[in-house]
Design a protein around this nucleic acid. Structure first.
Length: 569
RNA sequence: GGCCCUGUAGCUCAGCUUGGAUAGAGCGACAGCCUUCUAUACUUUGGAGAAAGCUGUAGGCCGCGAGUUCGAAUCUCGUCGGGGCCGCCA
């Protein structure tokens, strides 16, 4: 396919004398595979674009390609059998790694999701995890060596709140005694605190005292902190496992929060930073419209960005990464702009290779989620709820499935619905999570794409005389010459480009939309073309080869989104 | 006050990086299709009826106003609406 495209381009270069040719894909398949618009030539040739098109067309002769003039465009039609031949064989050979690039040894770190250990993971974290996880997979397909890192905010005021509430109200209860998932238990304490503080504002003072005790290493306080942190982290781990999320390395804030001072102080000596009137060390970025930001307090204690500066260096020492991607919500846009400016000032090697993968907030129909008030959609509950709905759907269709199989399917379908729903939005957008409307299994959803896969599998199951099947290289793929065939083939051939774009723009949503489109193209094919009842066995085999390639791509694409396929739904 | 994101069908969103041929989906509404490779299934030729399926119809000054261009949803400037950020909080 590419080689033919390149032939077209080089021929056009010769004929037009232009250095660069940009081919377009026509709006509908009847107009060919590629098109060359003649508008840009009107000025220099002083002729109407339709005239120019006719002149150029005369000079074009490419094997297996027909050039037609349609108005101001030259449209190229690639011989269908060539198209089918190239794509299907390529997919057959590479399987789900079709579209992947060779590893180049470039190391990319993806940081996600950075939880606080005072409450369970909510919908915002879920979006973070799913985005981070799928972009990591997509980048791997482009040959990057991706490592997943996490930073755990396991110290500070927020943790002390859960701790204080535990001391005051828990009365010896534990997650085990209450039969509660351990991170939820900790989260409940946090909500308890917020409730209590409303009536007793003086509790704020106690929090500060507790924080000081913690920093001084008070034995009881540290013990409680360790206990509650473990509850939180164990709970997170359980959720990560449900999401099939593996972290290569976790950095704990409690171990790093005191570092970074020396870097800032050295920067001050080197005149990269300066002192403000109060004695704080700051970076001034007025020239970049970013104002002034404190990097180290006058009393020598660190602020959040101090830790982030240190953390970056630590990670660079650990991984010597070529690129670092921070998956963090868009409320931190400013923070990261400043952070990267600091890297530049320090002239760190990786300064230009850090990206903030910024994403929008998830809101509820009633407004923003607030964990203090308990108005959050919890990740674990959401997964359970959707799995329940999926189970109902399965029960409607089958009443004789054994329990394990039913669970396996319900789980795969539920996760596909959740993942696809969250990932199909452009990451920069905020979206409103409306439970009733969001958890559908029809339309532009994960299950719709899964269903296309299952339908193809069903055809192969019904194939009784499989001995009539031949290997792809012995299949006469030139028989795939209908409009339906072409549409499906074109869609398949676009897959590598989609992966590339998805990776370049950090947009799993591009892949979602493509997969929906591919599944929909297949469903049209399924309606219009009968496969098992094809006129000849040869034709049947060719169509089967096409569908096999289609299901391979669906499986591959869903894989990057973290969605499992099912042979039967 | 400064900065960032965003405004496309009743609702939810693609498309904008790289300007081009009638602006695309999903949901919802209305009208249909098919029984095949999918669940159930009564009956007299026939009919009923089923989809994580398909088709059609209605629905758009692409927020508004200028500019650049042969050509703007796409680029530039302005303007209005929505969200966010600019703490010695993390």
């Amino acid at each position: 396919m590419d080689s033919i495209k390149e032939q077209i381009i080089s021929t056009l270069k010769d004929v037009t004398g232009l250095d660069e040719i940009r081919l377009e894909v026509p709006p509908n398949p009847e107009m060919g595979d590629f098109a060359f618009p003649c508008f840009p030539l009107t000025k220099q040739l002083k002729k109407a674009p339709t005239e120019i098109a006719k002149d150029i067309q005369k000079g074009i002769k490419i094997k297996n390609v027909e050039a037609k003039v349609i108005g101001p465009y030259i449209n190229f039609f690639i011989d269908k059998s060539i198209l089918a031949e190239q794509i299907i064989k390529d997919i057959e050979e590479k399987k789900t790694s079709f579209g992947c690039k060779k590893p180049k040894g470039e190391v990319v770190l993806v940081e996600s999701p950075g939880p606080n250990t005072n409450k369970p993971l909510h919908l915002g974290h879920l979006r973070n995890i799913l985005l981070g996880q799928s972009i990591a997979r997509i980048l791997k397909s482009q040959g990057k060596d991706v490592k997943s890192v996490n930073v755990v905010n396991d110290r500070g005021v927020h943790i002390c709140k859960s701790m204080l509430a535990y001391k005051m109200f828990a009365d010896g209860k534990t997650p085990e005694s209450e039969n509660k998932k351990s991170d939820h238990f900790v989260g409940d304490m946090y909500v308890e605190y917020a409730k209590a503080e409303k009536d007793n504002p003086e509790m704020g003072k106690e929090i500060q005292d507790l924080l000081v005790k913690w920093e001084e290493g008070d034995k009881d306080t540290i013990e409680l902190w360790k206990k509650m942190n473990k509850w939180a982290l164990d709970g997170f781990q359980e959720t990560y496992e449900k999401l099939n999320f593996n972290i290569d390395k976790e950095y704990l804030e409690s171990e790093t929060y005191k570092h970074g001072k020396d870097i800032i102080e050295k920067g001050l000596k080197d005149n990269l930073f300066e002192k403000d009137d109060d004695g704080n060390i700051v970076i001034r970025l007025k020239d970049k419209n970013m104002g002034t930001k404190v990097l180290l307090r006058a009393n020598g204690t660190s602020v959040y960005i101090t830790q982030d500066i240190y953390m970056a260096k630590l990670r660079y020492d650990d991984y010597k990464f070529d690129e670092m991607i921070y998956v963090v919500g868009n409320e931190q846009d400013y923070h990261f702009k400043v952070l990267f400016e600091v890297f530049e000032k320090l002239k760190w090697k990786f300064a230009g290779n850090c990206k903030h993968f910024s994403y929008g907030m998830v809101e509820l129909p009633e407004g923003k989620m607030k964990s203090r008030e308990g108005t959050v959609v919890d990740t674990d509950n959401l997964i359970d709820e959707v799995t329940g709905l999926a189970r109902e759907e399965i029960k409607k269709r089958y009443d004789d499935l054994d329990f394990d199989e039913e669970e396996r399917r319900a789980n795969a379908i539920a996760m596909s619905a959740i993942r696809f729903f969250i990932l199909k939005f452009d990451p920069v957008r905020n979206f409103v999570f409306n439970p009733k409307e969001s958890l559908a299994f029809e339309g532009e959803t994960g299950p719709y794409v899964q269903y296309a896969y299952a339908r193809i599998c069903s055809i192969f199951r019904k194939l009784e005389d499989s001995e009539g099947l031949v290997k792809v290289e012995d299949t006469n793929l030139s028989l795939l010459d209908t409009e339906s065939d072409r549409k499906l083939l074109t869609s398949l051939s676009n897959y590598p480009t989609i992966l590339e774009e998805s990776a370049k723009n950090l947009k799993p949503s591009t892949l979602c939309h493509y997969l929906f489109d591919l599944a929909s193209t297949f469903n049209e094919y399924y309606r219009d073309i009968s496969i098992l009842k094809a006129e000849t066995k040869e034709l049947r085999n060719a169509r089967l080869a096409l569908l096999d390639a289609t299901r391979t791509i669906i499986k591959s694409g869903l894989g990057y989104l973290g969605i499992d396929v099912l042979e039967q739904m």
